[in-house]
Amino acid sequence: MLELRNLILAYGKQIVLQALDVSIEDREFFSLLGRSGCGKTTLIKAIAGLHPLAGGSILLNGKDTAGLPPEKRNTAVLFQDIRLFPHLSVEDNVAYGLRMQGMPRKERRRKAGGMLEAVGLSGMEKRPVDALSGGQQQRVALARALILRPAILLLDEPFSSLDMDLRRAMRDLLKGLHTNLGLTTLLVTHDIGEAMLLSDRIAILDTERLVCCDTPGALLNKPEAAPYLEAWRKDLEDQQRLL
C-alpha cells in the first residue's frame, strides 16, 4: 500500500505538484492521468527515491520512505526510455536485481528464464539488447522489474512509443501479470483510453493539483472529470461514426 500525504514536489525552482493526497491499495491498478510535463515523471522518481521531496511524505506499507535510498526501497520502475543495460544480455538484464541481492548465477539465470517466459520472450536469453525490437525491449524491462516482486510497480508512460498493435498486446500483458502476480501498480500516462481500460482507479492531475480520483465508471459521471474526458469522448464518437 502506497500513501502520498500532502506531497509537494519541485523541479528546480518550479513546483510541479502541490499537496497531493492519494492512497493506493494493495493489488490495485492505479493510474495517474495528466498532460505531458505536469510532473508525472517527477512523481514516479520521487516514489522510487530518485527525486527529493519538497514537502509532505511518502509511506510504503506504513513506513515513511524519507531518507531511504532507491536501492533500499521495494519499488521497481519501468522508465519511458526503457534503459536496458547495453553491455548485458537479455537474461543478465532481467537478472540484474537478483544479482544485486547476491543470488548465485545459476539460480538467477533460471529465474530470469522463467520471467522471460512469462512475458513471452523465452529463447531470447542470450541475445544482446540492441538486437531487440522496441516492443521486445519493453517486455524485457518489464521482466526485469517484476522479477523482484516489488511492493509497487511504477510505470512512466511505458507504451507511448509503441504502435497500436504492440500497445494493445503490452496492455494485455501488463494487466495479465498484474492480476496473476497480485501486483500493486501505479501507471502514469497521458493516454485517457489506456487509463480507463486498465485501472481500478484513476486520479486526474492538472497543473500541480489533483482534480478528482475515482473508478473509471464513476469518473464518466463526475462533472469535474468531464472537461478532461471530453477530447477522448469526442475521439470515440468520431471512431464510432467511421466504423
Partner: peptide
C-alpha cells in the same frame, strides 16, 4: 538511475 531502482 535504473540500476538504483533495481537494488544497486
Amino acid at each position: 538511475e535504473a540500476a538504483r531502482t533495481l537494488g544497486a
